[in-house]
Amino acid sequence: MNHDLFKNSTVNGVSFKFNKIIKPLKILLTNNKAKVGFIILAGMIIFGVLGQFFAPYNPNRYEFVRSMPPSYSHLLGTTVYGQDVFSQLFYGAAPTLLVGFSVGIIGTFISIFVGISAGFASERINNIVTGIINIFLIIPGVLLIMLFGSYFLGIHQSLGYLPTILILVITGWAFGARTFRSITLSIAKRDFILSSMLIGESRLGIIFRQIIRAIFPVIISNFFFTAMYGTMGLTFVEYLGVGNLLQVNWGTMLYWAINNEAYLTGLWWWILPPSFMISILMFSFILLNFGMDEIGNPSLRRFNSKKNKKGDLNEHPEN
């Protein structure tokens, strides 16, 4: 009997480690919204990676008949400059995703750092950092994009997407920091954190071993929110003309289409495809964002979810 139990626990031990690796994915797939969002996003990533190889033409070639409506040889027609829109759409996917993800990852890291340290620090530091967060939240992002964008205008070519990502991280980190600060404040008062302080765990130890894990769904949810901001922000940076307009991405496609008044001249095949691609990508980020919110906040979930009893989810005993 005893032997049996022992055997069981090693099996449990192995599956626990296995769980650790695929846990984030498993959490995602317990929620319908997140599941749909994940499938769309995966499709987008495949589209972006394969697009580089399967695009029928070089997106930067200006040699086709200008302003051609969609046809068999040009599935989405051509631009007023004679570029193939379909190829541009394919090529533009990867950079657009790249900007969205980079802003999501870097922005989330900054907001975790600022938010958690504010929430777990002394009251005075908390107040100061909260003030800084609020300033970034209330200053209209457009102003900051213009300001920092004009700073990089001359040197864009040599730096690729770095300035754009930097601008969007600067204007986008504060939303997450606010969330992390308030959630850390509430967790820091819980008994299981006090308990770790009592056994002599350091603040950093508590943050890395416990707080980060407790707010993991929120981190993921915030990543998708910031990635969403990054994607939308890319289109704004390009629209305002402070991005690198020679690169092909969905933002620059819109910029050129709008700049050439495609909406007035009836070139719908130039302006609508990038709009809808951005929309679908944003849609998947929103779904993942809200799906993760529902996972992190069980009261938003459907009642009949039995999975949470099995223990794959992070559930807190209170609230």
């Binding site: 969403m228 939308m232 289109t235 704004f236 629209y239 819109l254 709008i258 909406y263 007035l264 302006i271 709009s275 951005i278 929309s279 679908i280 990508l281 944003m282 849609f283 980020f285 929103i286 779904l287």
Partner: peptide, 22 residues
């Protein structure tokens, strides 16, 4: 709501302008 939040705002503006004004 999700669709409205995800469609590029300025593109929507141009489309509205085209349909209702131009």
């Amino acid at each position: 709501s999700m669709f409205m939040a995800s469609f590029p705002a300025f593109v929507l503006a141009f489309i509205m302008l085209d349909i209702f004004s131009v």
